[in-house]
Amino acid sequence: MNTCVERLKNGIITENPTFVMMLGMCPTLAVTSSAMNGLGMGLTTTAVLILSNAFISLLRKVIPDKVRIPAFIVVVASFVTIIQLLLQAFIPALNSALGVYIPLIVVNCIILGRAEAYASKNPVIPSIFDGLGMGLGFTVGLTLIGICREVLGGGAIFGVQFIPEDFHITFFVLAPGAFLVLAFLTAAQNKLKMPSATNVAGGDSSMACGGNCAQCTGASCVANKGIIEAERVAAKAAKAQAAKEAAAKAKAAKEAAAAKAAEKKED
């Protein structure tokens, strides 16, 4: 039971996908024009995340290692299709508000990331709680950004208006406002020295993706991960070699000095 509580806390606070890991930026920016849309997107993603984590965890001993990424993608895409059909049937308003971003949950790196990093290595129950925690963390992130934008741009929270229309800053509901709100939220995180993908060490590799694998577990990076690991090992080995050489040099110098001293003594 402890692991389950720990997974929930990990997803919502320690490794919050929106604020700490900065994953899944496309839906984060696109659908947060109101708190309700943010909440809807978050819960939809949570449902897919729980189902795909559970299923992939069940299949973790069956799926061969080499084809695991395509296999994960098929599993995730199936669940996304199921959820999309359910939304079309039962919550058509949310379905039309989120539009193309529902099928795009397939390429949300949080889902493939959790499949690769957790569900493919752990039993079913903890994986389900991992999915639930991550999903709720994502929901909280999206809802908070949605509330910020809705209050500033529309003077309302969850559609309940409390600021008169003359004082609305429509800018925040439009596309540029999304970037600006996220910029100020991450800046506040940096200022308060809260953990975030933007202020940790590392991520200075010459790789195209920045090489910051601690934050990125998406499928695309699996290939690059090996290269970066190898680079790191090589760098370590080079460092050790250099240290060894330096030590040898120091030893040689010491010996030479000792020999000189001995020579002097003999003189």
Binding site: F179, A183, N190, K191
Partner: peptide, 18 residues
């Protein structure tokens, strides 16, 4: 200082979006 890294990039993107 607090805008170094991602925040300033997002601000830039916002201005470009405008």
């Amino acid at each position: 200082n607090s805008f170094k890294g991602t925040p300033i990039v997002l601000v830039t993107a916002s201005l470009m979006a405008i």
